[in-house]
Amino acid sequence: MEGFLIFSISVLTLAFVYVILCLALNIECGVAGMWDLGIVSYFGVGAYSYAILVAPAAASYQHYLFGFELNPVFGILLAVTMGGISAYLIGLPSLRLRREYFLITTIAFSEVLRITFSNENWLTNGVAGIYNIEQPLKTFFSPDIYLILLFIVFFVFAIITYFIVSRLSNSTYGLSLKALRENESLAKTARIEPSKQYHSVYVFTGCLAGLSGALYVWLNTLIVPTQFTPNVTFFVWTALIIGGIGNNKGAFLGAIFFVILLETLSFLNLSAELALVISSLRIALVGLALILILRFLPNGLISEKPRFL
């Protein structure tokens, strides 16, 4: 296949992983109005759950104890479950806090998790990470076909997530979340119990982030702790704000726009030295895009609109 086509397909495939993450963030932060800077936690938990279940047993130079070489379907299921469970547990203390205090607690938890991933060699193989995690069904297809297959599978995951999240945000449950976002005290007088709603949406977000973590490892075939810095959280937030916070279409397109923005420059065939410069410059470009959007389109590309009933 032509190089550019291959490149475009793989960029979009990666973008779908971000789409799921971005939709998860949107229902939590866009719809329910929480200030979560720790979404990378569940992304990471999901990714490691998948890796540990699917990876082969450790080689002599590796240190992790587990590596079950199980069917990736179990990997994905475990990733979703563990994403949810970790969100439930982290939610217990942190959901008692609001706004800045919630923000700092969630980012602190995500750093504690990342540091744990880097240091607990028996579980995660530490900073060296786990490599060569086999992609499901890879052996049955030629590389080109597999690329397209991956694109389709990830697209389906993204679309299903989009429909679930949209349905939920347009349901009575979603209405209660928006009410909490707009005015928590008043929402209480409408019989809405904040702790229940916040906790359930937090766990739901954790499950989706866990799913996207699993897909991320599937795509990359490797996992290292540096993939789970707060940078991911800020990236997803940036994508959501560019797309339009509170709007699921915005979240979907924002993630794709963002990944294209980030990856496009890396297609150019350049000398190694120049490539390094370019890789820095594209971060600057993302920053510039974010600043400009916030200045001139503060509600994002597709803003939240009044819902006609």
Partner: peptide, 20 residues
């Protein structure tokens, strides 16, 4: 009220028939 909910939604939130 809830500023970024529509007038109709502001009423619907308060319905005693809601299941959240």
């Amino acid at each position: 009220g809830f500023p970024r909910l529509t007038v109709l939604e502001n009423l619907l939130v308060f319905s005693s028939k809601n299941n959240f």
